[in-house]
Design a protein around this nucleic acid. Structure first.
Lengths: 138, 138
DNA sequence: AAGGTTTTGGTACTTTAGTATGAGTCCTTT
DNA sequence: AAAGGACTCATACTAAAGTACCAAAACCTT
């Protein structure tokens, strides 16, 4: 909001300044009227581009980001989250174990805990839930 | 491309017209210089907004759609695709069977065929592959 | 009607996934 | 130092998932 006030203040000042400039040029004849008009055109062209860009930015759909706060809220630990990513990549427990340099038993434990925390019965459901909770990118 | 040429032609004509208008107003004194400047400012403001909107539209990401042609190419049948959707929803074979009013054996057959067609080893990998192939929405 | 594809379903078996439980190690906080 | 949490791993099961192979309806298409 403060930016909007600033922009419109600058806009009004620019208009007044240009009016004065044009009058001065008109009377003194130092600056040709063509250059004055060109400056005005350029200034308002830039203002148009800037204001439009600002308004469009607000309309843009919120880009989906990982909600790290929700991960904490659900009590999902660092290691569990790494396992969750492995699941979403379509890896088996064995493959996740090899990727994280731990045993398959460990992965099974993590998966079991994840399913409870995500309120899911299967790993496929866990993927769905995690994406719905914005814990994983779509 | 044709539109761009048109826009720039209109822009140049507008500039020339405004130059003439300003000169005419300057000589005859019929129109005050403030109004002339205001018109110029407005015109270029609008041009700025329009050009910016056009350039931003092109930058927008193409909205992801289901590639039904790819489904055919992979030889995935109607029923198999329904099963695939069930898998992506995190359902078990039993649940998919109940949803489609068929036996679990049938679902297993469909899943097995799907895994071959999607070149996946697990249903979780099938989800990943299907989304990568734009067969399923992200 | 014949022929191909899809859909359906079964049996039998192997492989993963997931649960339950217990326990040791390492870190951090009190 | 004790307590709690996170990470690790194992055993022993149960439950799904997935494979292989076969076969019969149900549909289309020619």
């Amino acid at each position: 909001m403060k930016k909007t006030v600033f922009v419109f203040s600058a806009l009004i000042i620019a208009i007044l300044a240009l009016f004065q400039l044009s009058k001065y040029a008109y009377i003194s004849g130092d600056i040709s009227i063509e250059i004055g008009i060109a400056v005005i055109a350029l200034v308002f062209f830039v203002i148009g581009v800037y204001i439009n860009k600002k308004s469009l930015r607000k309309q843009k759909v919120a880009s989906p980001k990982i909600d790290s706060k929700k991960i904490e809220t659900l009590g999902i630990s660092k290691r569990e989250y790494e396992v969750l990513i492995g699941i979403s990549e379509g890896l088996s427990n064995r493959e996740i174990a090899d990727k994280l340099f731990v045993s398959e038993s460990t992965i099974k434990t993590h998966v079991s805990n994840l399913l409870v925390k995500l309120d899911a019965k299967r790993r496929t459901q866990a993927i769905q839930r995690a994406k719905a909770l914005q814990i994983l990118l779509p």
